[in-house]
Nucleic acid binder design. Structure first.
Lengths: 223, 223, 223, 223
DNA sequence: TATGAATGAGTATTCATTCAT
DNA sequence: AATGAATGAATACTCATTCAT
């Protein structure tokens, strides 16, 4: 691999700014006091701090109850800076949700197995793992989903995901000859939501481990 | 969305109208041009109108989006009067929720039957009936439950109810020799909550009738 | 005239509230802590103070440069109160302008005379009188008229008034056989605006008296 | 709206580009990798672009509605750079207005003719030409003039120009034996301002051509 | 008991200006 | 000379709550 490959970090390559082309001006740092990549770094850092602060506060307190001032304080930046990166409070929320969804998006493919029972078990396990690892995210999504009028984008995302997922479960149940797969797949959907909700509300008192075992035993047992 | 939690309570049937009992305060107040009982009547009437207005508005719009001014207008009273009866907006909400929960308590007794299968069927039917008839109420309870930090009292009520309820279902399942009653009763709890939340979000697109039949068939069939 | 006529002041009769009908309740002042007319009085007083403060500040500084906070402070009320009476800052402005226009509306009829020369002289005199007595109002109107995009209502009012007025002048000039009444009436319109503008800007240094005499001499001299 | 004030000035033809003269400051700055004159060239270029962007935006949208960020973007420079050349947003405006006034100064000389009637006709024609070609500029000047408290410098410039101008017109009228030149010159000033303001407000509906002919016919006809 | 005028702390958002680089 | 991330004071507006009557 030629040495010069090292000169092109992903950061530089992704830069949307053309200034890094080496000209007299950029070499002498006359035109630009900070390099564009340095600036981008600063931007990303600030954005990240804002997003993290916003996410944890909104997930804990809810969207309305969390003020821009509070987020800025938590993130250690000024209120004004938030509007360099996000058009509005709602735009910030949308980016937060989109980010969080992306995190979970890639996994499904890895859960597939030629044995449908195992696929189903993987899904169940993944669901409980998500619940344990990102409870705040699911709490937030649930809250937002309930506010259809205000956050249609969340509601739409959620509804669509739910449909695709129910179909998928049904096909698995068909393959493993589970009785009444049509109704049962809808039931499984409700069970997932129900467990999530109860866990998100009562948390440590909820028998998450027991329920996980129970579900796997109920739906993934080899006949 | 813990919905089923609200169906059962340990404190059975406290008077829903305790204010009519003549307390020291109202008895003493005899210099008033109105008799104490007349006064109390007026109080009850005003309170009722405020609660009704508050409930319907909050259920429709959410707690934050509903202002005291709006409630007062809908109830046909002044803003100031509201603070004669309720210490704050949050206190009003608490009394609203408490009332609504008490209403649910009465019903349970009527669902009992010497045949546990029939009792269970009655419960399932009542659950779906509630969902159809008072979706706003359940939406409100769900919304509030998710705002733990702000409305701890709802969370506590919900958790307590859920426990009592799970025990009750378990006993029914034991009586009808349903396999694994311990886990299954928790599952039924999750199913109720799951169905409720899905229905409350997607409404008309949700197969409520189908799910009701499916559940009755699954849990109440005589072997 | 029957004595009871004296009981119905205009204030009471105009009240939109029916409470003044003498019933036990209103006599004993149980239902309403302040009489509706007293309330209306308070409202009018507050409104007046806000309007006066707003008018003088906006006329002096311009609309944008005058903040709600400033107006409230000048009026000696809280910011919040302003929104009891006016829907927005712009609504306040609109009411201000409408009020000011009303003040000047009635006069025209009184300027008419069977001798068109005298009518014209009356108009010219009235114009200079207005300029002397309400310069802030005309300054404000001029400023606002220039901001078509934002204050279309002012622009429309102004344009309409100008048209009617030009036609009126033309007819007068026709009657007094002034040469070229069509063009001359438009010129007179421009002259009025021009004098107003110059006076409103340089004020005391402007030869208002001299111009008034000059105009009367030029246009109202008996042939 | 004092428009005509900007047409004449006492300080005739200061260099419109005084910055190109090498000052002590730029001469000394020899450690720079650029020559001082090269630097100065860059300065001039940047300043010019900023001024042009600022002028067109402010003329179109008004002073308050135009942000520094917008100007910088339009000019293709950074916000920070603006503060190298202008102390503040208001300072930028002041320089803009001063520049624009100077531009007007040059023209007058070209309008002069040994025949005073022709000079007057030239002035009238030039006035209407300006109005047609640069209405935004005149709109801006008018807007600013009316904000005395905020932009006193505009007011002062305007007042001074008006005086010089009135004297000039008067002398022309004297030469052509127009009756009452003292009053009539002031009237012409008012007429210019009046026509300008009416045209700037109602634009296409204003009979600009008709008024131009009418004025020339009225004031420049050889007897 | 009942009213509603009044308050003031709170909200999201904007923007001229600063300053490290 | 030039940049643009960052600031913070200012903006219009909202609303739960108080209190004189």
């Amino acid at each position: 691999m030629p040495v010069n490959e090292y000169f092109f970090t992903s950061e530089i390559c992704n830069s949307t700014q053309p200034y890094l082309i080496l000209t007299d001006r950029s070499v002498k740092n006359i035109m630009s006091p900070r390099t564009p990549s340095k600036n981008e770094e600063i931007r990303q850092e600030s954005m990240k701090r804002i997003k993290e602060a916003a996410f944890s506060l909104i997930a804990k307190q809810g969207y309305d109850a969390t003020s821009i001032a509070q987020i800025a304080k938590e993130a250690g930046v000024s209120k004004g800076l938030m509007y360099n990166y996000f058009e509005s409070k709602e735009d910030l929320l949308e980016k937060l949700v989109t980010d969080a969804m992306k995190e979970g998006d890639h996994v499904i493919a890895q859960l597939l197995n030629e044995d449908p029972s195992i696929t189903l078990r993987n899904i169940i396990k993944w669901f409980f793992k998500e619940l344990r690892e990102r409870p705040e995210y699911w709490r937030l999504m649930t809250e937002l989903t309930f506010r259809i009028d205000k956050f249609k984008f969340v509601h739409d995302m959620a509804t669509e995901k739910m449909k695709g997922y129910t179909v998928f479960i049904k096909e698995l149940l068909v393959k493993i000859d589970y009785p009444n797969p049509e109704g049962e797949s809808k039931l499984v959907g409700a069970i997932f939501d129900g467990i999530a909700i109860q866990y998100l509300v009562i948390r440590d008192d909820y028998p998450l481990v027991e329920m996980e075992k129970f579900l796997i035993d109920k739906y993934c047992r080899k006949k």
